[in-house]
Design a protein around this nucleic acid. Structure first.
Lengths: 332, 332
DNA sequence: ATGAAAGCGCTAACAT
DNA sequence: ATGTTAGCGCTTTCAT
């Protein structure tokens, strides 16, 4: 049997307005006595405010939506954790949604979230063929585009990492270490991220006047199985290579396995460089060198930016660009 | 500028009641014509129902809370994914919360969730010194206790795995393979889970009349660092052992590393058995044999049970016990 | 087949 | 310092 401000008002012999004010600390002109009375009554009867009722009038729900492809993909848990931590600090809750990069699911979730009147959305968009964003904008729900920087001209916040710079530096490092025949196993190139990573790779080769050979640049998906398949293919085709930079760590982990199965030793015969720095990159053997993204912080800052947009703070940058960090372990 | 049923009612020249009924498919006695009119108006103006207003009267929010220690812990993403998938199928959203096994955070989240009027909560409880559950029960919010089966006499659903049976079978397998000096590196024994896993281990030793030596049973935390430390200690103390079963995979992965650093080869010198079957157990070298829990399904069934409790279905079991499955890979 | 009206629990002017 | 009132957007009897 839930108790409401009405009940408390009756018991305290005051109006609901008074109770509401006290309970929301807008109590400048409330006498200490009634304040006391209300507070103790609230405690005694274990009063729990009904935020739905509040939200209905204030138009704020203190909840934000987090739309990602898949929480079970090792790249996302840390991001989600960062986002949740900041949200929680600021008194917000997070509703999380897994889209599997499927546009219909994205649309459906976006609809659900806007029905739930979330105050804002953090969105890892699968692609830009997506009118959901326009829909959201029309409702003027603040949006943060996270990780995947799709072209969208609306007023959104962006959290991106400098992918091109990342592979550029990683590849450069390899070149300066003396590797000359460097392959690139990419994820799905429909993805902006994949494009930028490839661009950084090429840029480094160009700068050092190394040949950019198509047969050494493979494109597939951001999965371990693809990394395994691609590296095996390179081996089977007897395409010469002494290093391979990978679109992400999962690909790299698959590639390492294929290389080892093919009798290569790492990094002596072939160096392998990953991207992301997921938890398990420290656990494979040899430990994976990788281009690290600050995942936790990306999530954290995404929430932070979103909340500042929600609360209409001025003068903050709408775009935060993170630099990657080259982490050298044992595979290069 | 959001549009409401009131607007639609005005435009269609009908009452809000009629609009509400049509939009909720309670339209048995509504003429096809007005139905049509309302539906097309709703579409044209891109009507989005305000679920807060709805919830205020129906007392249902179609959202459920998921309280776990840490989404960045590799054990939880799959569970969360399973829970979210089922919730989504049934039209529910999930609010997720990370407690770090910290009681204050648990309490705070539980309060937030009950203010948000979630329809139910899936809860991985850190301990039973916790009156939050009573609080929830008083509000008659359905609860599922997931994974950690704390003693609580209220009316809750439970999703548990047969931990004792798991380590029993795993240990038995090791014994039958000929291992005789089996160590056990456990997590924090304050935890019911840890207790049961230890009990299964002992049971197997007993059954085969193997000595249960205290020096071979270590207790720490469910972390990789502890696994490394514990295995190193065993080595340094020159305590004889030819196999080690671990409280979870993270511990096992740490132990493998320590053993390798100590010059042991696995499984020739020492066999290592994990528990959980997290994603990365396939990636370490040698691939980890482990006692597998059906994490995705546990999450999925947790949502399913919770939703059936919310929707007051009868005759379903309030407790679902999952069996573990011994997965033999290369480390044993 | 449709409408009128009450009310969910709360906040926010505006009065007093 | 506190009360009155209206209303947020919706659902749900009960009438008609």
């Amino acid at each position: 049997m839930k108790i409401t401000i009405k009940d408390i008002a009756r018991m305290a012999g005051v109006s609901t307005a008074t109770v509401s004010m006290v309970l929301n600390n807008k109590d400048e002109h409330i006498s200490a006595l009634t304040k006391e009375k209300i507070l103790s009554l609230a405690k005694e009867y274990n009063y729990i405010p009904n935020t739905m009722a509040r939200s209905l009038v204030t138009k704020k729900t203190k909840t934000i939506g987090l739309i990602i492809p898949d929480i079970a993909n090792p790249f996302f848990p840390e991001i989600a954790r960062g986002a949740e931590d900041k949200a929680n600090e600021a008194g917000y809750n997070i509703i999380f949604c897994n889209t599997d990069d499927n546009i219909e699911k994205e649309q459906k979730y976006i609809d659900m979230l806007s029905e739930k009147m979330v105050d804002g959305i953090i969105f890892t968009a699968s692609s830009d063929r997506n009118n959901s964003l326009d829909k959201l904008q029309r409702q003027s729900i603040p949006i943060i585009l996270l990780d995947r920087d799709i072209p969208f001209k609306g007023d959104v916040g962006r959290i991106v990492v400098n992918n091109k710079q990342g592979t550029y530096e990683g590849t450069k490092y390899l070149i300066e270490k003396g590797y000359k025949l460097i392959a690139f196993i990419n994820g799905n190139i429909a993805n902006e991220t994949a494009k930028h990573r490839l661009a950084g790779f090429k840029m480094a080769l160009q700068e050092y006047e190394l040949e950019i050979k198509a047969e050494r640049m493979l494109e597939g998906s951001f999965k371990r199985e693809w990394g395994y398949g691609a590296a095996s293919w390179l081996l089977n085709q007897e395409i010469p290579f002494d290093a391979v930079v990978c679109g992400n760590d999962l690909i790299a982990i698959g590639a390492i396995r294929a290389l080892k199965d093919g009798g290569k030793s790492i990094p002596e015969d072939v160096a392998v460089l990953g991207f992301d720095d997921i938890y398990m990159s420290k656990l494979v053997e040899p430990e994976l060198s990788t281009i690290s993204q600050p995942k936790y912080e990306m999530g954290y800052r995404a929430s932070e930016l979103l909340i500042s947009m929600i609360e209409k703070e001025k003068n903050m940058d709408r775009i935060i660009v993170f630099d990657t960090k080259l982490v050298i372990r044992k595979s290069t």
